[in-house]
Design a protein around this nucleic acid. Structure first.
Lengths: 250, 250
DNA sequence: GCTCATTTCAAACGAACGTTTGAATTTGTT
DNA sequence: AACAAATTCAAACGTTCGTTTGAAATGAGC
């Protein structure tokens, strides 16, 4: 609804030059409508008839252009996820170059993860924010094809960032760092996905809950502190009094 | 499959005494099968025919005993969620009594949240772990009836724990604490829900990923460090060098 | 203008869904 | 044994789903 460029990107290579269409591509119209509706209702609960009606295209257009509903969902994700992860890795590389061989701070590494997400949220006036919520929900979706798709989409980026954290936090064992990185991804995706859940926990005004930038400004320091926290050798509590007999009960 | 007591709990009051049935109640058979299948496939993708076949009962039994598929889902959740949250609040109260007016440590409060979850995971050999995964996924489900249900189920417990954290961390403003509590819930539910996602991030053996206790032993210190981290007045980074110009770019 | 590949369209397909029905069966009470 | 309430059951209800089909429309190349 707010996208600009009209580029054809025909399926069979790029032999033919660009050609004008309705005003926006049928394919893009479907992607935009699907992104919004998948975000709102989830994958299973969103029917192709709902999508094609909202997009103003024929029902059969989805199967013609994308093959199936599952492939449409993957196309919705990859359209924005792939550039975002690319941005993340480039930003991380630029930070590392500027550091000239010295390890980065946790905040700096987290910034390389968050800034591309924020840019995405701002780029398309409402589509971007919707996409981040859709993405956060996809993490928790039990459908195997979604999990496999995200797994391959994220593998490279996660590997790059784990290496960066490993260099920044040399005193944290490799296995412990994997856990902490997992917690970081969890808090981030949950935060991006469940803006409504905030109403349960806090009494913030609804306008405030949509401010993703403010949200991440609070999340990054929180996570950085957890990442930096000293690592006890025996897998028990790290710093406080009752760290030893922590899970002895029950 | 492993539940013990056979209690009838007929819908119209409690006039009639208990009476014996098959071996396990039809109602319980449905709940057990539904819990496992909802966990595996999600709410939308799990059909009543799949549930009733797995439970060995007639298709119409779900609508007879529970009214609808949605009410069955709520019954699956509330059967274990309500006692777990009750345990959490009781455990927190006992810790507070033992502290005799002094504030609890973050780890202690987190223990009051985690221990009942671990007890639940151990109680039923595999049903408990399945339930935690189901619960974690329900957090991210977009269905309105699920969100409303969880909201009411959690409101009381969250309020109790926020008060405890507020007392333990008096230097953290109320609003900032709400955010951090939100992050805690996010990391916890994500961790409980997505054990498979770990394979993306770490190269842990699959046997290790199922060890929830070890998992939470690592999660609690991580979260405690984040909760305790100093709070900058300007919502910027808390402690490190580049905390100021953190999100200036993009 | 004709050709041919690409795209759109209305219509239908078979399957699966949640739910309802009404009769059969079981169960507890008298 | 007889009755009434509770529960089970097979069958069908109407709807919606993702996908397929074959003809109509469209647009570029010769």
């Amino acid at each position: 609804m707010a996208t600009s460029a009209i580029q054809r990107l025909s399926r069979n290579g790029n032999s033919s030059p660009e050609r004008t269409v309705d005003l926006i591509d049928t394919k893009s119209r479907i992607l935009d409508a699907a992104e919004e509706l998948f975000m709102e209702h989830g994958f299973e609960a969103t029917s192709l008839r709902l999508i094609t009606t909202a997009a103003g295209v024929n029902l059969a257009a989805v199967n013609y252009h994308f093959g199936s509903k599952e492939e449409l969902f993957q196309a919705v994700l990859t359209r924005r996820l792939d550039p975002m992860n690319q941005d993340r890795m480039q930003l991380l590389s630029s930070y590392e170059s500027a550091a000239a061989g010295k390890p980065l701070s946790c905040e700096k590494i987290l910034a390389a993860m968050f800034i591309p997400a924020l840019k995405l949220a701002r780029d398309h006036e409402q589509g971007g924010k919707n996409f981040l919520r859709l993405l956060g929900r996809a993490y928790a979706d039990p459908a195997p094809f979604i999990r496999e798709f995200l797994s391959t989409q994220y593998r490279e980026m996660i590997g790059r960032f784990r290496a960066a954290f490993s260099f920044a936090l040399p005193h944290i064992p490799r296995e412990e760092l994997s856990w902490r990185l997992h917690f970081v991804m969890g808090a981030l995706s949950y935060t991006l996905a469940g803006a409504d859940m905030l109403k349960i926990i806090s009494q913030l005004q609804p306008e405030e809950t949509t401010n993703d930038e403010l949200l991440l400004k609070r999340l990054a320091p929180f996570l950085a502190a957890g990442l930096r926290s000293p690592c006890a050798p025996n897998n028990t509590g790290p710093s406080d009094d009752d760290g030893q007999h922590f899970f002895q009960e029950a």
